[in-house]
Design a protein around this nucleic acid. Structure first.
Lengths: 187, 187
DNA sequence: CCCCGAATACTCCACGTGGAATAATCTTTA
DNA sequence: TAAAGATTATTCCACGTGGAGTATTCGGGG
């Protein structure tokens, strides 16, 4: 149980699953994929084992028993501890209350865009707009599906958030494109 | 000159400076800070030296001369190569044309928010709103300043982009908060 | 009934990052 | 004018990530 290093997003996702019930890393992996949580956290088998291992070192989870299904390699089941629950809700509260700069690369790219001729930028943005629109359509149809299935809305507010930010980006890129084409924005 | 590993954001920032003129890593550091580019890329002295070293290994920049000012440690000046220019514009084009998921943690946090009582979430969001508003005000006054100074707009479109996305987030968080308070969104 | 590929369940290594450490020199203040 | 602190310029180490690698076992087609 070393000192409390900051939780990583994947660690948080793991804790969140262990709040529901004890399980082994591979089951976490399957659940995260099945629930499409890999759209919110980067999920990689190797990283997941490391993440859970670290959680154990920090005393946030504990290995409780090892069953072996068939003759497969032994699976270690982990259970969340009281400290784990606390760290989890603390992370949640911090992340909800305080915005953190995570340095997305698109802002950097547009801030450097003056290095390219205006015509090229217009064309590149066109491609981006297409991709963004596809993402948005996907989210909208996903929402449709969730509604139809009757899943409670509190379980998928993130879908609405992503829609909202996507729409904002689309709108902004579109006006930039227009201003570049018309020459309203000197390049 | 190893194979072409993907450029890191800091590597891109370094290349961008070397397009202007040859310089040594510490000068890059000072320039990035002076120009407030540390709002777009994570700039850390240690990381910068590593980044430039890697650029050199990849043949994107070359060490050209070492002057020593006073009796300070020797400073190695780097110059961008043709391959460097190419890699730089390629990165730019890719990042402008194709959106990439960078897994910000706020979406994860809201997707897990149902683990907290509604009242607490409302209060946490209030704090977030305050912080977001401050950031927005900062950006607006920054824009004011740039306009007054007469800096060409193509050099600071990122400021407008950030304003736009910030506004979208503020609006969304606010409506979520309202829906939580009114009970319109069952928790 | 046997082989091939997918799934299961993990391990390991190379890389990039961040923060601390270092060491010299310049500036400021008492 | 001497000590304290900031600046210059860089190195080093520990950590987290991602991707490839491994070994076993289950399921389906010829």
């Amino acid at each position: 149980m070393a000192r409390a290093t900051a939780l990583t997003p994947l660690g948080v996702a793991a804790l969140s699953l262990l709040v529901e019930e004890p399980m082994h890393p591979y089951e976490m992996y399957q659940l995260l994929i099945a629930r499409h949580e890999d759209r919110l956290v980067k999920v990689r088998p190797g990283t997941l084992y490391h993440a859970v291992g670290r959680l154990e070192e920090q005393g946030l989870v504990a290995a409780t028993g090892t069953d072996r299904g068939g003759n497969r390699p032994e699976r270690t089941t982990y259970t969340i501890s009281a400290a784990g629950r606390e760290a989890f809700t603390k992370w949640l509260q911090d992340m909800l209350a305080a915005p953190v700069n995570e340095y997305p690369s698109f802002p950097l790219a547009i801030s450097e865009a003056y290095n390219l001729p205006a015509g090229v930028v217009v064309e590149l943005l066109e491609r981006r707009l297409q991709a963004l629109q596809e993402q948005l359509d996907f989210l909208v149809s996903g929402e449709e599906l969730l509604k139809k299935k009757g899943v409670e809305r509190k379980y998928w507010i993130d879908v609405q958030y992503q829609q909202c930010t996507l729409q904002a980006e689309i709108a902004w890129v579109r006006t930039l494109q227009v201003q570049l084409r018309s020459g309203e924005l000197p390049w």
